[in-house]
Computed example of a mutant assay.
Amino acid sequence: MVAVAHGSRDPRAAATVAELLGAVRERCPGLPVHASFLDHGPPAPDRVLDGLARDGAEDTVVLPLLLTAAYHSKTDIPGVLNRVRHPRLRLRTAGTLGPHPLLMDALERRLAEAGAEPGDPDTAVVLVSAGSSDASANATIARLAREWRPRGWWDVVPAYASATAPGPAEAVTALLDAGAPRVAVASYFLAPGYFADKVRNAALAAGAAAVSPVLGAAPEVADLIVRRYDEALVASCAATAV
């Protein structure tokens, strides 16, 4: 498996990806798991795949460590794979991690760690993602917020760190003005970095009572990676059979 993360100049991001993939290796002993990054640091996915091909690999799953399907999964990763010229290396591409119920469970785990008990009727939640120029990716976050409301929270609303509105501070302020007794922010980020720090600072300044840590190596995320890997294998076998 070649896992493809966004990449960051913040060294905490690569360390978090390494920890997460370590948890995946524990779940799948014997499965070679390689990290790669689209930006800001090595190794690049095509370099990893070239190395595997030179070592004689014939089959691998490329798995995006991305929380929504947007520009990186729709354009960047296919572009990288188009540069890989090894006819004996068969590539299977897994789906992005999100959306998936396991990510909602991981978000609630992280909120609990920040002091917001899951389903607390006196707590409103702001679900914050990075934001995207891809409207469908932003719509996915809004849908996840709607689907999360029935779990017992006072309310759940979406927000975005960039590209579109509302921002996290705006969303926190709106909930407090609407009468929410307490507002917690759920950080829909895989790894620490600029956006996660920006969201935390803005949300706390606006009056949020808690901001969750990034998803990182939450057990649910590691489980989901294994599931996406298995799904890619099954889908490839089904396509071959047809």
Rank of each mutant, 00 (worst) to 15 (best):
A3E: 02
A3V: 00
V4E: 04
V4Q: 05
A5Y: 09
A5K: 00
S8Y: 03
A18R: 13
E19M: 00
A23R: 15
A23L: 09
V24H: 08
E26K: 15
R27M: 08
C28E: 15
C28I: 07
P32V: 12
H34N: 10
A35T: 05
D39S: 10
R47G: 13
G56D: 10
A57I: 05
E58K: 12
P64N: 09
L67Y: 10
L67D: 12
H72T: 07
T75A: 15
P87N: 10
L89A: 06
R90D: 12
L91Q: 04
L91C: 03
R92M: 12
T93I: 00
E108H: 04
E108A: 04
R110S: 07
E113N: 00
G115M: 01
A116H: 03
P121F: 03
T123C: 13
T123H: 05
A124T: 05
V125L: 14
S132V: 03
A135V: 13
A137F: 02
A139W: 04
I141D: 01
A142K: 03
L144H: 03
A145E: 08
R149L: 06
R151H: 14
D155F: 00
A159R: 02
A163S: 12
T164S: 08
A165E: 14
P168Y: 00
A169R: 00
E170M: 01
A171T: 04
V172K: 02
T173Q: 11
L175Y: 01
L175M: 11
L176S: 10
L176D: 04
A178P: 03
A186S: 13
A186W: 02
Y188L: 07
K198V: 05
K198D: 12
V199T: 10
A203H: 04
A205P: 01
A208N: 02
P219K: 05
L224V: 13
I225P: 02
R227Y: 11
D230S: 06
D230G: 05
E231N: 15
C237I: 05
A238Q: 13
A239T: 14
T240A: 13
